[in-house]
């Protein structure tokens, strides 16, 4: 199927009709036939560069979430952006917590940042999961990707992946009064507090790298490459997919041995 560039764009609802269009009044087909499934996967690869990851769910108990592109929050971003929509990730995390077949969560990050509130919401949700979670930073985990990267039980970064830490700033009309700067400082403190309480990096060190002036050409801040993030205490270990899955499986086993698995909880229920 050939699609125009406009059709290839993805975005969220800006104008929604309350009544279905006549051409769309039919229910979607259930993808039961193998041929249709194959076509769907092919289309997903063509459109999104990804396949249907949760199909692995029942086999190993590990659920994978990919956080890519911009983390889209309260504002729908224009179609040239690849986005991760928080209104889909948040209920997905609820389902992961409740689904007895899911034993652990692997979060793969390759994000350029995005909405502060959405990013912090996802980070808090991952942090408060009772099931083991591991994050893996591939490519980049920048800006608001940093709190998400440190929110899991254990974090990995690949050798070549980078994490940019730079100050939050306001866009649009800015009123030049002290309250504006205080608000900005409060927003920044929310991030700093979360990151420093979920990793080994100290507040002083995090602020130091955030306001560094000799690292970036167009900005202030620091780019941490792989091992730098581990040395500074932001990420737990340098590693890739194999290490991340092995660590998650060991965390799942440790939880099961303590009787903390979902099955064990179910058996305790009256």
């Amino acid at each position: 199927m050939t699609l125009s560039p406009r059709q290839r764009r993805s975005s969220s609802a800006r104008r929604v009709r309350t009544t279905p269009h006549p051409a769309l009044q039919e229910q979607p087909k259930t993808h039961t036939q193998e041929k249709e499934k194959g076509q769907d996967v092919l289309q997903n690869i063509q459109q999104l560069g990804q396949t249907n990851i949760p199909q692995q769910l029942s086999e190993n108990g590990i659920h994978t979430i990919t956080i890519i592109g911009q983390i889209e929050g309260h504002i729908t971003l224009p179609p040239q952006n690849k986005t991760t929509k928080y209104e889909h990730i948040i209920p997905q995390l609820v389902a992961i917590e409740q689904n007895p077949k899911i034993q652990g969560l692997l979060v793969i990050l390759n994000t350029v940042g995005g909405d502060v509130e959405a990013g912090l919401a996802i980070a808090e949700m991952i942090d408060t999961l009772t099931k083991p979670s591991v994050t893996l930073v591939l490519g980049g985990g920048h800006s608001i990707g940093v709190p998400i990267a440190v929110s899991s039980d254990y974090s990995f970064i690949t050798e070549t992946a980078t994490m940019t830490i730079h100050p939050i700033r306001l866009t649009g009309l800015v009123i030049g009064v002290p309250q504006t700067y205080e608000y900005l400082d409060k927003m920044q403190d929310r991030v700093i507090k979360f990151v420093t309480s979920h990793s080994r990096i100290t507040k002083e060190k995090f602020r130091q790298v955030m306001f560094c002036t000799n690292q970036l050409a167009r900005d202030i801040g620091t780019v941490m490459v792989g091992k730098d993030a581990v040395d500074d205490g932001l990420i737990d270990e340098v590693g890739g997919l194999g290490q991340a899955i092995a660590k998650l499986q060991s965390l799942i086993k440790a939880r099961e041995s303590k009787g903390g698995s979902t099955d064990a909880l179910d058996s305790d229920a009256p």
Partner: peptide, 12 residues
């Protein structure tokens, strides 16, 4: 509030 390494003019 967006916090991203991408230039905001490119994002928006």
């Amino acid at each position: 509030m967006l916090w991203t390494v991408m230039p905001l003019e490119a994002v928006l």
